[in-house]
Structures are given as C-alpha cells and as structure tokens.
C-alpha cells in the first residue's frame, strides 16, 4: 500500500484530495441551498421544519452528513498542510512583487478565503446544527406530528442585523472561493478539454460563485426583513 500513501502525500495527491473534497462540498451546497429555499415559502416555517426533520432522520442523508463533516475537516487540514509547504518553498520573499499583473486575486487568496469560510462554518453550525442536535429548540406540531422548530431559531438568529451582515460578507467570501475553486478542482483532476472547460468555467463563475452565494445571502436578508415587518 506504499503507493497509496505516497500518492496522497505527493503535492499532486494532496491537491487531488483538495479537489475531491472541494467538489463534494460544492455538490452539497446545491442540496443545502435547494432545501433552504423552503424559507421563502411564507408558510410560517412548516415546509422548512419538515425538510429539517427529513434531513436529520433519513439514514442515507445522515451517513452522507458524516462524509460532509469529514470533507470539511480534511479540506481545511490539507489546505493548512499545503499552505505551509507552499510558503516554505519560498523562504525569502520578493522585496517588490506585482502578482496582480499575472493572476486573479481570488486564486492567490484561497487560504484567507478558506479561513473565513471555516470560521463561518463554525459559527453557522454553532447557531443551527448545535442547537438542533444539543440545544433546546421549541417544538412545532403539524398534522399531529411533533417537529423541532428550527425555523424559530432561524428567525431569532437572522433577526440580528450584525448576524445578517456577517452572513452576507461570508457569502461574498464563498463566491470568491468558488470563482476560483470550482474550475480549479477540475484542473487538478486533469479534466480539461476544449469543449467542456468553457462549460465548467461558466458554471463555476456564474452558478457557484454568483447564484448560489446570492441565494444564500438572500435568506438572512429575507428573514430579517420579515421578522422586522419591513416586508
């Protein structure tokens, strides 16, 4: 099995781990966003809470969620290892450097963006995931069945202006991260082709870097406006 460890500890192997975990997280974002669109339904949170129940009780989803947690950790840990390695590759920095002349800002700052996102995930999970699993969430009853009322937790959290602003900023960060990250993941896997790469780039830049973060950012804004009866 030497070849497995050797492969995964090579610079290319590590990038493959980054790519696979990253692309998996991208696919998760689609599901997460689609589900959370229930927030916009205007039904007092019933659809959202039913969806939450499904997500926390379906065995398949529960299994995948562990893969998801692992992916986040591995992605972050590998990024840390790679960043240290990359920094060590240039022990003496240039006195004067002009990187903006040859590369996009996002591509050079994936580490910083990723760190912001990691902090965001921690806050996000503390607010919702932790409350859902270990906190005291009020209950709601639909058609005689009891549901944890996560929608209420959402309303409390997104009722705070600073929290909404934080969310929006983090969604900008995720936009930049995916602007580069999505297509980069395919490059790492060697999936580059005259015919398909433009499609991947289009998806990465417009769908993953703009539409998804915009949809996510709309949620706290919408809930905030609703909670404060502005709409």
């Amino acid at each position: 099995m030497a070849w497995v460890t050797q492969t995964l500890s090579s610079s290319l192997g590590r990038k493959v781990i980054m790519s696979l975990t990253g692309l998996f997280l991208c696919s998760f974002l689609i599901i997460h966003m689609a589900g959370n669109l229930q927030l916009f339904k205007g039904d007092g949170g019933r659809a959202f809470n039913e969806y939450t129940y499904f997500m926390t009780h379906n065995p398949l989803i529960m299994t995948i969620s562990y893969v998801l947690y692992t992916s986040i950790l591995v992605h972050a840990l590998m990024a840390f290892i790679l960043t240290r390695h990359n920094q060590a590759s240039r022990p003496i920095k240039y006195a004067y450097s002009k990187p903006e002349a040859n590369s996009a800002w996002a591509s050079r700052n994936m580490g910083i963006l990723g760190t912001v996102l990691l902090l965001f995930i921690i806050i996000h999970m503390r607010t919702f995931w932790y409350e859902m699993h270990f906190g005291s969430v009020p209950m709601a009853e639909y058609d005689g069945k009891e549901y944890k009322d996560l929608y209420a937790v959402v309303q409390v959290a997104f009722g705070e202006l600073w929290y909404v602003i934080l969310y929006v900023i983090c969604m900008v960060a995720i936009g930049y991260h995916l602007w580069h990250g999505f297509q980069s993941g395919f490059q790492t896997l060697g999936l580059r082709h005259k015919k398909y790469t433009p499609i991947i780039e289009f998806l990465g830049k417009y769908f993953f870097a703009i539409i998804i973060p915009a949809a996510f950012a709309a949620m706290p804004i919408y809930v905030y406006l609703q909670v404060h009866h502005i709409i």
């Binding site: 090579s10 610079s11 390695h85 990359n86 590759s89 002349a101 580069h180 790492t188």
Partner: peptide, 20 residues
C-alpha cells in the same frame, strides 16, 4: 513529479501566473 516534490517546489494553485 516525485523528483519535483523532492526538490522542494510548491504545489499548483492554478493561479495561471506561470503561463502568463
């Protein structure tokens, strides 16, 4: 690739600076 790693070069972040 093994030799490249052994020499202590960094990993590719696909910034595209090299090609430019």
């Amino acid at each position: 690739v093994a030799q490249m790693d052994a020499e202590g070069f960094g990993a590719c972040s696909f910034t595209g600076a090299c090609s430019v």
